[in-house]
Design a binder for these strands. Structure first.
Length: 605
RNA sequence: GGUCCGGUAGCUCAGUUGAAUAGAGCAACUGCCUUCUAAGCAGUAGGUCAUUGGUUUGAAUCCAAUCCGGAUCACCA
């Protein structure tokens, strides 16, 4: 950094966000002026609306009653005092109705720019020594991933990445549901219909190959049930008696008994599925540090039942089944062990939580699971709390809404599931067509082009799924492919590429700028300065959409700036340097924020 | 029926720790490529914030009731 300028006139490098900086100053001013104690929490400070003069606004209404003065008078007094006491921070103020609009000095904003313009990690926090586990994806191994999984995966990956940026040590994990009746259905169908076919012999991706047999099972099952009903059987009975269903149940028993040929087929078919999943994960950029398999964990948790019975948290019914009564907590009674002594879903989850804690001693454990499991996760946390588990408090359910079609929920039986691989490929094709049409990267090699198409396709898809508040369900219309204009990933990628195109021609010099700031120049810095806060908030609220919304605002602002003011042919050399710095800082923040969403940004597009 | 979540522009969504004239994108309409990438910019139009009542200096936001949609309350996972 340059040190040969009159630094003493400038505020120190902004480790702290401007809002947290001015809050104590306002508190101090209030106390001095009126002799009453206020806390920072009592202040309402927001960015000043564009139609008014100023950067940040203090709402005065709340003080009127306590101080028995009109808002106008309060505003004048506080404003005068702040500008007098801290001329290095406040250059002007105005009072409109009950709002005190404060203008921060250009010098302050320029110091922010000067300190951070070449910092690609602006907003990154120092390690806080805390460990967070994020469990996401968690697929079944009987069919390929679909659009709903993608929302889960992008959310999980992003929330882990955001925590990492906020200073946490993160471990991404996945619990694979690799056992159970649904797997056996694919296995039975393969035995019946495959005639030895494999993914290799058919050229199909393993997860799709196995998924096809799951569909074949259901078709056959439906056919057999129909035949039995026509033979005079009742529907419920037919559903139980259909030969393929009986064979499947038999197979599940054999699996649990460890029958060698069943285990072998199971391992083989799961292997195909994993190969398929891995290909998808690699393409979309998902990764895990720890895989858990239900075939290993489904017996866990039984020791909890013993403990719970001893401490009276659980109780046993006459038939031998074990329950917990949660009615005092507003929930129902919940079974934790079947009468035959086998564990249920929630028992396994207790066991897995314990195992994760033993292995990683996490401070926080985030489960990315659809909102249909809100009740289950509430119960899980509550039970663990009642059992006095130290890790119970750190359990957080990142609940997200379903991705629905305009016609309603996706249903695999009706063939309305949007396949993950298909949608990625489709987006890549759109990206290709669009790129070729624009013809801006004709000199790219085959590989570079392919990389660019995936970057844009995944940018569009990830941004589309992450820009919405996770807890809200969202509508996806397959008729219209995901847009590349407006509030989208590709728009932001485009702005980044544009900036890079300038920076390839010239890089900013280190000398600090000391002149005036035009409206858009200042607005850009004011906005960029908020980035560390946005990371913090996205982390605290487990909500990547805050980053998506923020970074779109940045990109839009830069786009206006870019159209209105020239960088390389600026009015003066000093202005050019200023704008080069603005451009570089914007590019860094875009790359960083998009990175937290799992989206790459191209140098050219 | 109990619990939870949602209802904001034609569509998809922000805004929901109360604050100024409720914001974006898409779609529609008007302009702008001989100057750093037009996947862009500038602008026009589009609203009974589901309804009713309440609290407040101030309500899309808080409270109550009602209507609509969804999830869940399995010895399935």
């Amino acid at each position: 950094m340059s040190t040969c300028k009159p630094v003493n006139l400038l505020p120190k490098a902004p480790e702290m966000n401007i809002v947290s900086k001015i809050k104590p100053l306002i508190v101090e001013t209030l106390t001095d002026l009126y002799g009453q104690a206020f806390t920072e929490g009592e202040l309402t400070i927001s960015t000043t609306k564009p139609e008014f003069e100023g950067d940040y606004t203090l709402v005065l209404f709340s003080f009127v009653k306590q101080l028995k003065k009109s808002p106008e008078q309060l505003g004048q007094e506080i404003g005068t005092s702040l500008v007098q006491r801290h001329p290095e921070l406040f250059s002007a103020y105005n009072v409109i109705k009950g709002f005190l609009n404060l203008t921060i000095t250009d010098a302050y904003w320029l110091s922010v720019l000067q300190e951070q313009y070449n910092n690609p990690s602006f907003g990154k926090k120092a390690p806080n020594g805390k460990k967070v586990m994020v469990e996401y994806s968690s697929p079944n191994t009987n069919k390929p991933l679909h659009l709903g999984h993608l929302r889960n995966i992008f959310l999980g990956w992003s929330i882990a990445r955001i925590h990492q940026e906020a200073g946490y040590d993160t471990i991404k994990s996945c619990i694979v549901n690799d056992r159970g009746i649904h797997i056996c259905k694919s296995m039975i169908a393969w035995q019946l219909f495959a005639d030895g076919a494999t993914p290799a012999s058919t050229g199909l991706k393993g997860d799709h190959f196995v998924g096809d047999y799951y569909v074949k099972f259901n078709d056959e099952y439906k056919r057999q049930v129909e035949v039995l009903i026509q033979g005079g059987m009742k529907k419920e009975e037919a559903e139980k008696e259909a030969p393929v269903m009986k064979a499947t149940q038999q197979m599940l028993l054999e699996w649990e008994a460890g029958k060698p040929d069943v285990m072998e087929l199971w391992a083989k078919m799961n292997g195909w599925v994993y190969a398929g999943f891995d290909a998808t994960y690699t393409r979309i950029g998902a990764d895990f540090q720890k895989m858990y398999y239900e075939s290993n964990t489904y017996l866990l948790g039984k020791q909890f039942v013993e403990d719970g019975l001893k401490t009276g948290v659980f109780y046993k019914k006459e038939d031998g089944s074990v329950w917990i009564n949660l009615t005092e907590d507003g929930l129902d009674e919940k079974l934790v062990l079947r009468k035959d002594g086998t564990s249920v879903y929630i028992t396994q989850d207790m066991g897995l939580a314990e195992q994760k804690y033993e292995e990683f001693s996490y401070d926080q454990s985030i489960y990315v699971i659809a909102d249909e499991q809100n009740y289950h996760m509430k119960v899980l946390k509550l039970i663990l709390q009642k059992l006095g588990k130290p890790y119970a408090a750190g359990i957080h359910h990142l609940s997200y809404g379903m991705v629905e079609l305009p016609s309603g929920r996706m249903k695999s039986r009706e063939g309305t599931v949007v396949d993950a691989d298909d949608i990625v490929e489709e987006m890549a094709n759109v990206a290709k067509a669009k790129t070729e049409e624009l013809g801006k990267v004709k000199d790219f090699s085959e590989d570079e082009l392919k990389g660019l198409y995936d970057t844009i396709a995944l940018g569009a898809l990830k941004f589309f799924l992450l820009r919405v508040d996770p807890k809200k369900k969202m509508i996806f219309n397959p008729e219209e492919s995901i847009d590349f204009h407006g509030f989208t990933g590709p728009f932001i990628q485009f702005i980044h590429a544009r900036i890079k195109s300038i920076l390839r021609k010239e890089k900013p010099s280190e000398t600090a700028y000391t002149g005036d700031l035009l409206k858009l120049e200042k607005e850009l810095i004011v906005t960029l300065e908020q980035y560390p806060n946005v990371i913090e908030q996205a982390c605290a609220e487990h909500n990547p959409s805050l980053l998506a919304i923020f970074i779109f605002g940045v990109a839009k602002l830069y786009s206006s700036f870019y159209t209105e003011h020239h960088v390389l042919t600026a009015e003066t050399e000093a202005k050019k340097q200023l704008r080069l710095k603005l451009s570089e800082m914007t590019a860094h923040v875009i790359a960083s924020a998009m990175g937290l969403l799992g989206i790459r940004v191209p140098e050219r597009m």
